[in-house]
Design a binder for these strands. Structure first.
Lengths: 225, 225
DNA sequence: GATCGCGTTCGACCTAAGTCGAAGACGTGG
DNA sequence: CCACGTCTTCGACTTAGGTCGAACGCGATC
């Protein structure tokens, strides 16, 4: 029961491969550990290859000179990042920072590419995952360009909650991080949160947000500016 | 000299394939024609497959209920769209509209997928193109979230001009379209254009924009809000 | 149980950007 | 060469959202 295999082989990327190949991957991948706030990857610098999160949480971020930051996505266990860097063969196009102590696996570029050569079905999985990234980014562009902060927040809450009605926030999930994810700042997000709460659509507690009125929220999510 | 082959085989997607395969593609693909302002694909509806532009120009667009629109990209001859729809197997995630009379080729989903099965190197090309789309979308998110309209405009002009200093605008490239591409509205773009012109950084003519001061523009492109 | 620090909340203010109405300026087609 | 329609420009107004400073409260730590 190698931890290598337990994690790597459960990923959609590797799940369908023969054990022999999985072993080969496990051998060629190596581990790295990062502390809270440590920079895993800095925008513009060369990258090691594709990363897979084993444990912990990270954020992928773009930041302006003035210090504002836009979070592109959060990464949890099982998620991969910098596939784009590998296939486009370019330096890191965003910065990745650990939100809490995290362990990641590094699959070097050459390893990954030769793996794909030998296993065509892997290419399909990667194309799917890239396609999904595109869809997600398109919806982010749509949000930023056409929706108010309040609408973005409503959408985000609905998305996070899925079918449940309660969102448990991780300890690092501060309003600041949420704001950065939604492309705004702390204060504005906070106001939006209270506006929704005042109208009885949600209930905001310390580390939990409960959705009280799904239909009402959906309504707010539609409002464009 | 089939027009089919002249266009399809010059695309990066198909250039490296054997003539026999290219013929097979040509046989299974079919043509469609669209007039100015005609909707090629409507967001949310099922799609035919991947499209390749043979002639003309189109825009890929997201629009809000209020009528504001965000242009994701322009498509010219040789460019493909809806690869994402094929690989993620989802309805159209954006609307595509012809800016002028245009001819496109349609490659049905099944055709494309089986093509990839038989020609693994095609998968690599597609992964690259998807990866580039991701990079482009990330920079759009960055622009919308962290940059002023003026900075976005400066960046856009520099990008369009590449190494030349003059941007010839197509007849459909109105300030309205530019505005929609940059995530703003006509008036705001127009003001930004004039501000840059007043400072001698650019020169705006009817269907041409000339960059007078590249360094100065680059400076403006950096300014975040 | 007192203290410290982070996360959150509040208020007042400022500005980029969106909106509206209307008038010019081209350029095209009749 | 005229007339129309599209594209562009202008001015004045409104507002979402970003900024700043300060205070509050909850949890964690000692």
């Amino acid at each position: 029961m190698e931890p290598t295999e337990t994690i790597l082989t459960t990923l959609p990327y590797f799940a369908g491969l023969e054990p022999a190949v999985q072993e080969a991957i496990a051998r060629s991948a190596f581990r790295a550990r990062y502390e809270r706030d440590e920079v895993v990857q800095l925008e513009g610098t060369p990258t090691a290859g594709m990363y897979v999160v084993e444990s912990g949480w990270l954020k992928v971020v773009k930041s302006s000179l003035e210090g504002r930051e836009q979070i592109l996505r959060f990464l949890g266990p099982g998620e991969a990042f910098n596939a784009v860097g590998v296939f486009a063969d370019i330096p890191a196009s965003a910065t990745v920072i650990a939100l809490e102590p995290s362990g990641v696996w590094v699959l070097e570029r050459e390893t990954l590419l030769s793996l794909i050569d030998r296993h065509p079905q892997m290419a399909k999985v990667i194309m799917q995952s890239l396609a999904r990234r595109v869809v997600h980014l398109v919806s982010m562009v749509e949000d930023l360009s056409l929706r108010t902060v309040e609408a973005r927040l409503a959408r985000y809450l609905l998305e996070q909650a899925e079918d449940a009605t309660t969102i448990e926030r991780q300890r690092w999930a501060t309003q600041s991080e949420m704001a950065a994810r939604l492309g705004t700042v702390l204060d504005v997000l906070n106001r939006a949160l209270h506006r929704l709460a005042d109208e009885g659509l949600i209930e905001v507690a310390r580390h939990r947000i409960r959705i009280l009125d799904v239909a009402g929220l959906k309504d707010r999510a539609m409002l464009t500016e």
